[in-house]
Design a protein around this nucleic acid. Structure first.
Lengths: 221, 221
DNA sequence: ATTTGCAACAAACGATCGTTTGACGGCCGC
DNA sequence: GCGGCCGTCAAACGATCGTTTGTTGCAAAT
């Protein structure tokens, strides 16, 4: 396949440094996050993955049952916490008369921003973006079945704050915001930020631009 | 891997109907577009691909040299024509005093819209969206080396029409617009449009929403 | 002390991968 | 008619894939 980025030297494929901390399960999940982000779900093999995690090849099928189940677990581990915090933040402001669009967007984006403060969390954002682009039916059904209610609650609040928009118009705009958001978030954990700004301020800037952009896109006449 | 959509019956994996028209090369390119869109570059194997095209397995390596070269050719075939039309449309309006943001966005989006009027063109939009999400270095370098000048010319025109924005601010907004655009375009060729609107009007609506959304996102205070 | 159960391991399984090979047939210029 | 090229084909190549197996070490329970 298209030459992957880090295989030139070191024999067949270079193995990221072994993360020697944590249980076997956690080491696998961490390595999976890294390699799924870099090479995709198909592109990352269990052999690379287990080598990077410093565990035996059979450990994946032992602890997770299959590669597909591992993929689902990678999502579940992050999304459970992420969406819980999103809903908590939304609950603080939903329905209040002084709530603004910015507040709702902040409630949605801030937890993702916090999550990506540690490196592996940032990698997960790229995994998530990849999943969106994959258009894989099984994966989409899994995500919509387990986390669809989150998007539904946020949509309801958007609808309250934008009563002038028809339901269809609102869906269109939210969909486009989702695209921009996914695109921006997937940039986390990349190298291409300006080297003179810290990763932290880069993320903060991203969030600020994203929120102002989304407000404009959602509420334009 | 994650169960793919169409393998339940028909033995191992179902083969899309053989496109019996055109040369071997064109049949391969057509089938590649379909399967790369559905299963990704890694996920689509040459055996599925050649079976769908109704050609021999060895034909890919004979006509294209390798699978990677085939991937590049899939992009080149569409992007050459697409970006030529984009630049032509831009040249008609660039620099003119009465040109609006909508005009420039229209020049960028309309050729993609026209391209996706035939089904395989629409599929290519999903392939393109996938490539964006892949973050594959080789593929990105190929795209930026061959078609980077297009984005540069459009950026220059955006800069002219939005003189109040700093260069950095403009880049941010264009990046976010790109995300929304990619997201929306990748929806072409999908099943999930409302069944009571034709594919054609669906694309037209998408473009209209997209342009208005992008104008708001680019020019907000 | 013995049994039970869990986790890790090397090794192998059959399947599928991208690619290469060598033979076969049709078409052209000579 | 005939040698040379070109496109197609079945078959095979070695590599790598996800998964399974059987064994081992070890700690808790009996």
């Amino acid at each position: 396949m298209l030459k992957r980025s880090f295989e030139p030297a070191c024999g067949r494929w270079m193995v990221p440094p072994v993360n020697s901390s944590g249980s076997t399960k956690e080491r696998i999940l961490g390595a999976a996050e890294l390699l799924f982000a870099r090479r995709g779900f198909d592109g990352a093999s269990l052999r690379q993955l287990t080598a990077a995690a410093g565990v035996n090849l059979a450990a994946v099928n032992y602890h997770f049952g299959s590669k597909d189940k591992l993929v689902e677990e990678v999502f579940r581990r992050r999304l459970d916490a992420l969406n819980e915090r999103r809903l908590a933040a939304l609950a603080m402001i939903a329905g209040a008369p002084e709530t603004t669009l910015e507040d709702v967007l902040e409630a949605f984006i801030r937890p993702a921003l916090d999550l990506s403060h540690d490196d592996s969390g940032a990698l997960f954002m790229r995994v998530l973006a990849r999943a969106f682009a994959e258009h894989d039916d099984t994966l989409r059904q899994f995500l919509s079945a387990n986390y669809g209610h989150v998007m539904r609650q946020f949509t309801a609040e958007f609808a309250r704050l934008l009563p002038q928009l028809s339901k269809e118009e609102l869906y269109w705009r939210i969909d486009l915001v989702t695209g921009a958001l996914t695109h921006a978030m997937s940039g986390f954990g990349m190298i291409q930020r300006k080297s003179d700004v810290s990763e932290h301020t880069h993320r903060e800037q991203t969030a600020q631009h994203l929120i102002r952009f989304a407000v404009a896109g959602l509420s334009h006449p």
